[in-house]
Simulated scan of single mutants.
Amino acid sequence: MNPGSSYPLDGIDNNAMPSEAEPDTTQQQIMKVMDAAAFNYARILNLSDIRTSDSNELYRFLKSETCSSVEHSIFSTNRKSELAELFVNDVPVIFGWGVNQALIPFAKNAMESLRINNPLGILKPNTRYSYYHPLPRIYVKQLEWVQHVTSQITRTQQGCADV
């Protein structure tokens, strides 16, 4: 969805070089999946670069006039070359931006840009673009999300081994 409360430890925002960061709780959920799947590396591409831990603040921004005048999404048309530099093909891709209606145009953009045939994550029933966020408010649901995505990765890896 967005960088949340994560921040670079070196204090340099918009750094062109990789830097270590203080993870937020959503990123910690991804790290749990990584541990369970024995992955050493993950790249998180957010729908928006707007850093706020208050999702309602992000939704207000996405509905505002300012939103259309700022290139805040890696999936916007004018940032295709930047996306091409960051996106890695032929690796498992997890969708998990959330189900708020304000995200749908950005989720649609991301899905059309990436063209992933079998994304991982939990798609909200009867929707095309709404994937449940890795950090549901209910703790048990957080565990279920990690278990579900980990099992999807395991099935994908087994399928590749069977070929």
Rank of each mutant, 00 (worst) to 15 (best):
E65L: 11
L47Q: 02
T52W: 06
H72F: 09
S48Y: 04
Q29R: 03
S64M: 04
L58A: 07
I44M: 05
T77A: 15
H72P: 00
D54N: 08
K32D: 10
Q27S: 10
H72W: 08
M34V: 13
E65V: 05
Y59F: 14
P23H: 04
E65Y: 10
S69V: 06
D49V: 13
S68R: 08
N46D: 12
I30S: 01
L62Q: 06
S55R: 03
A38L: 14
I74N: 04
D54G: 07
D54L: 15
T66A: 06
C67E: 08
R60S: 12
S69D: 13
N15H: 01
I44R: 00
S76M: 13
E65F: 07
S76V: 13
C67W: 01
M31K: 06
D24H: 03
I50N: 04
R60G: 08
F61C: 01
S48L: 10
R51K: 10
L47T: 00
D49S: 13
E71P: 03
L58K: 00
F75N: 01
S69H: 11
N15P: 02
E57F: 08
S53W: 09
F75G: 01
N40Y: 11
E57A: 09
Q27I: 07
P18W: 09
F39P: 05
T25F: 11
V33F: 10
M17G: 03
L47V: 05
S48W: 05
V70E: 06
T26M: 07
S73I: 05
D24Q: 01
E65S: 13
A16V: 07
S73L: 13
S55V: 14
R43Q: 11
F39G: 07
T77C: 12
M34T: 09
F75V: 00
L62N: 07
E65G: 06
I50L: 08
N56G: 15
E65K: 02
D24L: 05
D49N: 02
S53K: 14
A37C: 12
P23Q: 03
D54H: 03
A38V: 13
C67Y: 05
T77W: 13
R43W: 05
E65P: 01
M34D: 15
Q27K: 00
Y41C: 15
M34I: 10
F61N: 04
T26V: 14
N46H: 12
A37E: 15
E57H: 02
I44Y: 01
V70I: 14
I74Y: 03
M31A: 12
E20Q: 06
I50F: 09
Y41P: 06
E22R: 08
N15C: 06
M17I: 15
S76R: 13
S73D: 07
E57Q: 10
A16P: 02
Q28C: 11
V33G: 08
S68F: 08
I44N: 04
T52L: 00
Y59N: 04
A42T: 05
N40W: 10
Y41W: 09
I74W: 03
T26Y: 09
P23N: 04
S53E: 10
K32Q: 10
E71N: 13
F75I: 00
L58P: 00
N40S: 08
N15I: 06
D49H: 01
V70A: 03
S76F: 12
N40G: 14
E71D: 15
Y59A: 03
R60A: 09
F61M: 09
N40M: 13
S53T: 11
